[in-house]
Amino acid sequence: STVKVRLGHLEVTLHNVSEEDVRELRELWKNGADEEDLRRWLEEWKK
């Protein structure tokens, strides 16, 4: 499914993403990950 995730002022649209992935991303964000960390996660996730 396609999910729009809003993290601060960063809005990311993920395609074919699982609930688990979204949860993981939100956890990262809650734990103080900055945009760099999130971008890195997204790069990994896209592979």
Rank of each mutant, 00 (worst) to 15 (best):
R6Q: 11
S1D: 06
E11A: 06
H9D: 14
W45Q: 08
D34K: 12
T13G: 01
E20R: 12
R23E: 11
K46S: 14
K4A: 07
S1L: 14
E35G: 05
L28M: 13
E44P: 00
E43F: 03
W29N: 12
D34H: 12
L14A: 02
W45D: 02
A33Q: 04
H9C: 10
L42R: 00
N16I: 02
D34W: 05
S18P: 07
L7Y: 05
L42F: 13
W41G: 00
E36F: 06
D34C: 03
K30C: 07
N16S: 06
S1P: 07
K46I: 15
R23A: 13
T2V: 10
D37S: 12
R26P: 00
G8E: 03
E43P: 01
R23N: 15
W29S: 14
G8V: 03
H9Q: 14
E44S: 11
V5F: 05
L38A: 02
D34V: 10
K47Q: 11
G32I: 04
E11Q: 08
L38K: 01
E44F: 06
L25T: 00
E36W: 04
L42D: 00
G8L: 02
W41H: 01
V17T: 02
R26E: 15
W41N: 00
S1G: 11
L42N: 00
R23V: 08
R39A: 10
S1C: 12
N16E: 05
H15N: 08
E27Y: 03
L14S: 00
T2D: 06
E36K: 12
K30H: 13
S18G: 06
E24L: 11
T13W: 09
L10M: 12
G32W: 02
W29T: 15
E44C: 08
R23W: 10
E36I: 09
D37K: 10
W29F: 15
E43L: 04
T13P: 01
W45P: 02
E35N: 06
V17S: 02
D21E: 10
T13S: 06
D21M: 14
K47W: 03
W41E: 00
H9E: 14
R39D: 03
L14R: 00
V3N: 02
E36H: 14
E19S: 10
E24G: 08
L38T: 02
H9M: 12
K47L: 06
W45V: 10
K30F: 13
E19K: 08
W29I: 15
N31G: 10
E11K: 05
V3K: 03
K46W: 15
V5G: 01
R40S: 09
H9Y: 11
R40I: 09
V22Q: 10
R39I: 13
E20T: 10
R23T: 08
E43H: 07
N16M: 06
E36V: 11
L28G: 01
D37I: 14
E44N: 15
W45E: 02
L38N: 00
G32M: 07
E36N: 13
R39G: 05
E24A: 14
W29D: 12
V12M: 09
L25M: 04
L38S: 00
L28N: 02
V5S: 00
S1W: 03
R40E: 08
V17K: 01
N16F: 07
R26F: 14
K47H: 08
G8A: 05
L10N: 09
L25S: 00
E24N: 12
D34E: 11
A33H: 04
E24S: 14
G32R: 02
S1V: 13
L28R: 06
V3I: 14
T13Y: 07
L28A: 03
T13H: 10
D21Q: 11
V22W: 11
G32L: 07
E11C: 12
R23L: 14
E43Q: 07
L10W: 15
A33S: 06
R6L: 13
E20D: 13
G32Q: 06
L25C: 01
E27S: 04
E20I: 08
R40D: 07
E27P: 01
A33F: 07
N31Y: 05
